[in-house]
């Protein structure tokens, strides 16, 4: 039975991934964000940060930040799918919910990886001072993988807490604020210490740090907190978020799914129409 669920989830994920790369609006958004980030890099690439150039410091940070947007992507899709009855359909189908979730993880993480590649290829050509070689890939891979496990379940939890896409939009504001203090576009050490502490609670800072440790020369560590790449702490914080998400997501999702029925979906739709009409 489990093989069927995995296969169904996998094929759901691939079908939705294909859909998101074959329709105009979504294709546009897959290129828009990477293009904006490449443009930003272009303008800041030659600013000095100690002995380094800002372009090289910011590029890995942007990779980490983009990977963390899985929180937003996951919660957006979950809220939308709940609103239009896709989740209810999953509930009406045998083993539909686990297959739905597997599919969603594949769609969101697949889309993210594609976005990262779309950004990385032109960005690497633009920026000087990176240290990219065979030794970069293992570091990149574990930070990315652990980062996704730390963020996607949390995204699913957030997505099930909101009943409408409009309310879900509120998640984005604090997310942007956290990006602002996470040392993505400049070293976090220039911020006041209390802000540094807040930033270190969230995964975004650690995903950026992990990416920098994989893609920058060792000398670049001098602008980091404690002049260390802090791999252990990175794994610890991301691991804690992953654990929290994986513990919470099944409980929250199950509770949310239990409340779904034809009339709750219809009632929400009614309310949404009243607001927009």
């Amino acid at each position: 039975m489990n093989a069927t669920v995995l296969r169904a989830g996998w094929s759901r994920g691939l079908i939705e991934l294909r859909q998101s790369f074959t329709n105009g609006a979504e294709l546009f958004s897959h290129f828009l964000w990477p293009a904006l980030m490449v443009a930003t890099l272009f303008f800041i690439r030659d600013l000095p940060v100690g002995a380094l150039l800002l372009g090289a410091v910011a590029l890995p940070g942007i990779l980490g930040m983009n990977a963390a947007t899985g929180v937003i992507g996951m919660s957006q899709q979950l809220t939308a799918d709940r609103e239009d009855g896709t989740l209810l359909r999953a509930k009406a189908t045998p083993h539909g919910m686990p297959a739905y979730l597997i599919g969603k993880v594949i769609t969101v993480s697949g889309g993210l990886l594609a976005d990262l590649a779309i950004f990385l290829v032109p960005a690497v050509l633009l920026v000087e001072g990176l240290r990219i070689g065979p030794q970069s890939w293992p570091g990149l891979a574990w930070v990315l993988a652990l980062g996704l496990v730390a963020t996607l379940p949390i995204g699913a939890v957030l997505g099930s807490m909101f009943t409408t896409a409009r309310a879900q939009g509120l998640v984005q504001l604090p997310f942007l604020a956290v990006i602002g203090i996470s040392g993505i576009f400049y070293p976090i050490t220039v911020l006041p210490e209390w802000l540094q502490w807040i930033a270190q609670i969230f995964p975004i800072y650690w995903m950026g740090l992990g990416m920098r440790s994989a893609l920058l020369p060792d000398a670049a560590v001098v602008v980091e907190i404690g002049e260390s790449w802090r791999h252990l702490e990175t794994a610890g914080v991301l691991g804690a978020w992953a654990l929290l998400g994986l513990l919470m997501a099944p409980v929250v999702l199950r509770r949310m799914a239990r409340g779904e029925s034809g009339s709750t979906v219809a009632a929400r739709r009614e309310r949404a129409l009243q607001r927009t009409g």
Binding site: I15, G85, L88, R89, G262, R269
Partner: peptide, 10 residues
């Protein structure tokens, strides 16, 4: 159900 509008892109 009375009204479905799920999976619009499929």
């Amino acid at each position: 159900l009375q009204s479905w509008r799920d999976h619009g892109k499929w």
